[in-house]
Design a protein around this nucleic acid. Structure first.
Lengths: 214, 214
DNA sequence: TTCTTTTTGTACCATTTTGCACAAAATCCT
DNA sequence: AGGATTTTGTGCAAAATGGTACAAAAAGAA
C-alpha cells in the first residue's frame, strides 16, 4: 500500500480552489465582521453549498480562523518586501504605509476598511482567544519589523544618535494600528495621508539624504 | 391647556431607569459587539420585555447608537478632569492613561476590553456611517484635548522649545487608540503598562520637575 | 366614574441561522 | 465490474432572531 500510493486522491475531485474561496470569504468578513456574516454569505462568496463548505473549512468559527491565517500569510511577504525596500528611512516608511493602504483599500471605492484583524476581527477577540492571539502576534510582528528597520537606519545614519529604536518601533506600530482604526471609521484619505506624513516626519527627524546604505 | 399642564406625564409610569438600562445594555454590547448581541441579551440586561425596550429605545440599531452616545457623554467629564488635573505633563499623562484603563477594565477580571467605540463599534462602522462618525468625533476630541494639554505644557516649560504640540497630539492620540486595540486583543496588563510608560517617556522627554504651573 | 394616554406583559410571527442527513456524482483501487 | 472514498446537491430540522399585535395595568384629566 505504501509503495502503491497514487498521486491522485481517491474520490470526487474538488471543484473549487481553496485559496480563491478563502479570499472571497475574507472579503465578506472584512466588510461585515464575523457575527454579521452568515453561512449563506460565505457559501455565496465561496461558490459552495453548505456541506462542501463545512467539509472543506469546518464550522463558521474555523472558517474565520482559516481566513485570518490566510490573510496574515498573504500580507507578510508584502510587508517584508516593503521593510526591505531600498532607500533612506523616510522612503522606506512611506513605502510601508503605502503597502498598508494598498492592502486595506476597497476596490472601486474611496477609503478603506483598515486591517482585517483590527477592523473586523478585534470585536471577536472576546469570543475566541485565538482571534486575540492572531491580532497580538501580528501587532508584535509589525513592531519587530519596525525595530529591525530603525536599528538599521540608526546604523546608517538615518536616525539621530540619541534615537531609541525600541521606542520608535512602538510608536510606528501604534501609528500603523491607529491608521486602521481611523480608516475603518471613515476618515477621508487625504486626512489619513496627512496624518501618516506627520507621523513619518516625527519618526524621521533628519533631513532626507541619498542613503549610502547597503 | 398650557396653564393646566401637570408636572407628571399621563399614563402608567416607567418602572425602569433609563440610564441604568443603557448602562446595562452597554456592558453586553461592549463584550459581544453589535451583531452578536441579541434582543434577548438586551432585554435581559435592561430588565425589560421586548415592547418596553422598543418603546423606550427604538430598534436594535437605535439602541446601539443610544448606548454609544451615553458612553461618550459619560467618559467625557472623566477625561476632561484628567486633562485638567494639576501636576507636570508626565503626571497628567499618567493620569489620562490611568483614566482610560479605569474606563476600559472589566470588573473582577484581569485585562480589559478597550474603548467601546474601538473594541465593539468599529466593526459596524461599515454597516452604519453614524457609528463611524461617533468614532471619528471621539478620536478628534481626544486629539484636541492632547493638543490643548501640550500647548499648555510647552508654555509651562514641560516640553522642549522645538516640540510641536500638533504632532505630539497626533502621537498621543495614536497611542491611546492602539492601547484599546492591544487591550481588546488580550495583551497582559503589565505589558500594556510598559507600553504606555515608554510612550509617555517619548512624549515627555524633559526630566520630571515640580511644576510651577497655575 | 369614564376617557385618554402611556407602559407592561403575554403571545406570536415570519424570517434567518447553523448544522446535519443522505443520496447521487465522480473519482481511485482491487 | 464492484467496492471504497471523497465531493456535491437537495432538503430539512431545530433554534435563534428582530419585530409586532393586543390586552391589561397604571396613571392623569375631565
Amino acid at each position: 500500500m505504501v509503495q502503491k500510493e497514487s498521486m491522485k486522491p481517491r474520490g470526487r475531485p474538488r471543484q473549487f480552489d481553496r485559496e480563491t474561496a478563502l479570499d472571497a470569504m475574507r472579503e465578506v468578513f472584512w466588510n461585515k465582521g464575523y457575527a454579521a456574516t452568515s453561512l449563506d454569505d460565505l457559501c455565496e462568496a465561496a461558490g459552495l453549498n453548505r456541506p462542501s463548505l463545512y467539509n472543506a473549512f469546518g464550522d463558521k468559527g474555523q472558517v474565520f480562523l482559516g481566513v485570518l491565517d490566510a490573510y496574515v500569510a498573504a500580507v507578510r511577504p508584502r510587508y517584508e518586501a516593503a521593510f526591505r525596500a531600498p532607500g533612506n528611512l523616510r522612503q522606506v516608511m512611506k513605502g510601508i504605509f503605502r503597502t498598508a493602504a494598498d492592502i486595506y483599500r476597497v476596490m472601486d471605492k474611496d477609503g478603506g476598511r483598515g486591517c482585517l484583524l483590527i477592523g473586523a476581527a478585534l470585536t471577536d477577540a472576546t469570543r475566541d482567544p485565538h482571534v486575540g492571539e492572531a491580532i497580538l502576534t501580528q501587532l508584535q510582528d509589525m513592531e519587530k519589523g519596525f525595530l529591525w528597520l530603525f536599528a538599521r537606519a540608526k546604523a546608517d545614519g538615518d536616525l539621530p544618535a540619541h534615537a531609541d529604536p525600541k521606542t520608535l518601533a512602538k510608536l510606528a506600530s501604534s501609528v500603523h494600528t491607529a491608521l486602521s482604526v481611523r480608516m475603518r471609521a471613515g476618515e477621508p484619505p487625504e486626512s489619513l495621508r496627512a496624518y501618516v506624513e506627520a507621523m513619518i516626519d516625527l519618526i524621521c527627524p533628519l533631513p532626507a539624504q541619498a542613503s549610502p546604505s547597503v
